[in-house]
Design a protein around this nucleic acid. Structure first.
Lengths: 150, 150
DNA sequence: TATTGTTATACTCTATAACTATA
DNA sequence: TATAGTTATAGAGTATAACAATA
């Protein structure tokens, strides 16, 4: 492989969007590697995380928090229920909603997964100082808060 | 919609991966909005950008630069060729390679697109100072350089 | 009328594997 | 043997639209 123009900084590199995408691909691959290829996908992990942290959250509300459609959440909850990590419970007041109740097993699995992911992310981001990591997260959240209000 | 736990900072928010994903969704949506729904997708724009900046680049090399498989690039190049933005040219020395040659039209379309995207990204990121934007890009690149060597 | 969960469906992005023609 | 481009194919992830049950 010749290195002709590999060092040239292209237009692309100046876009936040492009850099965001490339970094995201790296971190996502690391995430999957951390939990193992056949384990929880990022979005399933995210759903479990919120279900554990907010027990009895409804599917609609969870979808809203995750920024996805509620139709898309069905398969995710199916998977988590299939794993025995949570159950759909009826709610006394409103018979339309399914409250997501994490099981003991789900809480344990989540605690383990979160520790693993945290460790891998820490290793992956070892080149960034703690301050840089905080800054990065702060700036990413700033983008989100801007975008979501439009 | 009740606001019960909407302000609680969940575990998820502490992960770089999660924040990266959420921010990426926002910026990508803004990108598509900038160019119009039926125009160049981000990846097609990226390919065009590199083809314009590195005329006669081969498909394999372009795929490598973009971080995708060369099989995936075929449809992208097909689209750009269909739009008359570039052409596949044979290379004297090696009859296997297809050199991507941007057309006049392609260069003009790219110049217009890049200006549009730049303006939209600038507006979207107006809450970030110029220094913050530079920092963000620097940190994202740092993640990429770490991840790609593993 | 509006909302919750659900299904069906389709589209985009991407990877893998195999092929061909060249080298 | 190895590489460039290509094709076929499959699997994620996601969105839209419609429906039944319930509010």
């Amino acid at each position: 492989m010749d290195q002709d123009d590999d060092d040239v900084i292209s237009d692309l590199e100046q876009f936040v969007g492009y850099n965001l995408k490339r970094a995201y691909v790296i971190v996502q691959a690391d995430f999957r590697n951390a939990l193992g290829q056949d384990a929880l996908a990022p979005r399933v992990f995210s759903a479990l995380s919120l279900a554990v942290q907010f027990p009895h959250i409804s599917q609609s509300k969870l979808a809203r928090k995750l920024g996805i459609e509620r139709s898309g959440l069905v398969a995710i909850v199916d998977e988590l229920e299939g794993l025995g990590y949570l159950s759909r419970a009826t709610v006394p007041g409103d018979r339309r909603v399914q409250a997501l109740v994490p099981t003991e097993k789900g809480c344990r699995a989540y605690a383990e997964a979160v520790a693993t992911v945290r460790a891998h992310e820490k290793a992956l981001l070892a080149d960034l100082t703690a301050a840089e990591q905080r800054t990065l997260i702060r700036l990413l959240r700033k983008i989100r808060s801007k975008g979501e209000t439009e």
